[in-house]
């Protein structure tokens, strides 16, 4: 059963770290957005959109966690007996989204917070503010992709 422990660790890390990163990122944008709202409450919708952007990493982390849970049979089945090797495979597969998710969410939060400053002055440029933040998200998406492909590749 030793492998299962490692698989749990992988799932936990993916959810914890990617989620933490998103929480920090979303928080950063929220602070900026609240400042803008004191001046113009009608910008709530636009700023909320920007605030949502760094939130996706947490979801990617959760998604990876779910895939691992499915793999080891916590959801929809009985717990599978994993060897140590298999456990390590799963732990490693969780690493890309764990690390990249955490850091990219914070960086994306900063870019989105700057975007909030942009739309405070020029609300018509919301599209560009979003694009800057999305440039960061690319790498989280790539990391998620790597994690998913690795997970799908593991034979149990």
């Amino acid at each position: 059963m030793t492998g299962v422990v490692l698989a749990f660790l992988g799932a936990a890390l993916a959810v914890i770290l990617a989620g933490l990163g998103s929480a920090i990122g979303v928080g950063l944008v929220g602070e900026c957005a609240a400042g803008v709202i004191t001046e113009d409450p009608d910008k709530f919708g636009q700023t909320l959109l920007l605030q949502a952007l760094p939130g996706t990493q947490g979801i990617y982390g959760l998604l990876t966690g779910f895939l691992i849970m499915q793999k080891v049979g916590i959801i929809g089945g009985a717990l599978v007996d994993l060897t140590l090797h298999q456990g390590f495979y799963i732990l490693m597969a969780a690493l890309p989204i764990t690390v990249v998710g955490y850091l990219s969410a914070i960086c994306q939060g900063k870019a989105a917070a700057a975007g909030v400053g942009l739309i405070a002055k020029r609300p018509e440029e919301l599209g560009k503010a979003i694009v800057y933040a999305v440039m960061v998200e690319t790498y989280a998406v790539l990391a998620l992709l790597a994690s998913i492909m690795l997970l799908f590749g593991i034979v149990i």
């Binding site: 779910f66 959801i75 690319t138 998406v141 998620l144 992709l145």
Partner: peptide, 23 residues
């Protein structure tokens, strides 16, 4: 070209999260 892999990733994300909600 690799940048388009996000089409796969986002597509999977929708499906997997939806399935997780169902589960």
């Amino acid at each position: 070209v690799l940048s388009y892999s996000r089409l796969l990733a986002l597509g999977l994300a929708t499906g997997v999260i939806a399935s997780a909600i169902n589960t």
